[in-house]
Design a protein around this nucleic acid. Structure first.
Length: 334
DNA sequence: ATGGTTTTTACTGCGTC
DNA sequence: GACGCGGTAAAAACCAT
């Protein structure tokens, strides 16, 4: 099929998640910052949390938008303190006896007022934050996601809240689900949108919408996952001993992954990746590896069917077939 | 809204077990 | 006949504009 060069241009990502340096963000390459308070490493550019220690007392979030406050400083806790919610601070700059207070004190009061105003308008925001982070945790544990994914999702959600992204008919649920999906893609684990939708409280279009908004408004620049990310998952479920399908052995699995990677490498060179569904590409690469290897190597029988792969990947058999047609002439068995 | 692209659906024929 | 595969047209879905 003819892929116009224009669309390829648009969809092709110049960014390869190449060489993740020790101190570079895997997403944007910016230098990472270590947060000693939280035992985390994260990226200042895009908010990706690269590694995090255990968190022990529920959701408390860094404030990325207010550097002078200090990242992860105890001040963030104060923002969750409901005690100041209903308090107002007078404007007359006098103490309780009516005396004018010192300049230093006035400054402090002014700052307090500002904080106060902020927290008043923030009270519903705070509720939303709690609810949203709870929802993120719920989705995360339903999908058995690692802590750092949920953490990243929560950071994204927090930023969305800070930038008032919930206005205009966007529900907390969809933004939470969208945030989880964004975190999944940002960090690059093999979980599909479908999987998120399945455990979400909102439908697919909403999750999509939430994700899109976050991606756009927050400048997340989340890119399509490289198909390679899905290879191990697909292969290991093909090799699941608890099933009696008997597709392959563990060494087959390793071998196929290696060939599938070569196929995908080549496909990338040939511009056959961009615009295509990553998991479909991965499934087709595995299928191609299996059948082509069988035709080249004597003692290898093809055991995988298009139907099995497409089922597993959650794409149609036609898609696997189409990709296979594009891949099958690659010779990667030398 | 529109246009360009990919994916899905549904249906076909062909060879093989 | 059932299955795996290949091909295709039309509809649906997606995405950027």
């Amino acid at each position: 099929m003819a892929v116009s060069s224009e669309s390829v241009e648009k969809n092709t990502t110049t960014h390869e998640t190449s060489q993740i340096g020790e101190n570079e963000c895997p997403e944007c390459g910016a230098p990472l910052v270590a947060d000693n308070h939280r035992a985390e490493t994260y990226c200042e550019e895009c908010g990706t949390v690269v590694s995090s220690g255990e968190i022990d007392h529920g959701p408390e979030w860094r404030n990325f938008d207010d550097p002078e406050r200090g990242v992860g400083s105890p001040n963030t806790k104060l923002m969750h303190d409901d005690g100041i919610g209903g308090t107002r601070i007078g404007f007359d700059n006098t103490d309780k006896n009516g005396n004018l207070v010192s300049a230093e004190k006035r400054q402090q009061l002014s700052r307090l007022r500002k904080e106060n105003r902020r927290s008043e308008t923030a009270s519903t925001k705070e509720r939303n934050l709690r609810f949203g982070t709870g929802e993120i945790r719920r989705i995360g544990s339903a999908l058995d996601l690692d802590e750092d994914i949920m953490e990243t999702a929560a950071v994204i959600f927090r930023r969305a809240s800070d930038e008032d992204l919930f206005v205009g008919g966007f529900s907390i649920e969809e933004m939470a689900a969208g945030g989880v999906y964004a975190a999944i893609k940002q960090i690059g684990i093999p979980v599909t949108l479908d999987a998120v939708v399945n455990v979400s409280r909102v439908g697919e279009s909403r999750v999509r919408r939430g994700f899109s908004r976050l991606n756009r408004e927050l400048g997340l620049e989340v890119k399509p996952q490289p198909p390679e990310n899905f290879l191990p998952k697909l292969l290991s479920s093909l090799n699941d001993p608890s099933k009696d399908d008997d597709y392959m052995t563990a060494s087959d699995e390793q071998e196929l992954e290696m060939f599938a990677r070569k196929i995908l490498d080549k496909a990338r060179d040939e511009n056959l990746i961009s615009g295509r569904e990553p998991i479909g590409l991965a499934a087709a690469a595995i299928y191609t590896a299996d059948t082509e290897q069988a035709s080249v190597v004597k003692d290898h029988d093809a055991t995988l069917t298009q139907a099995a792969l497409s089922d597993l990947a959650g794409v149609s058999d036609v898609t696997v077939r189409s990709r296979y047609q594009e891949f099958k002439d690659f010779d990667v068995f030398d």
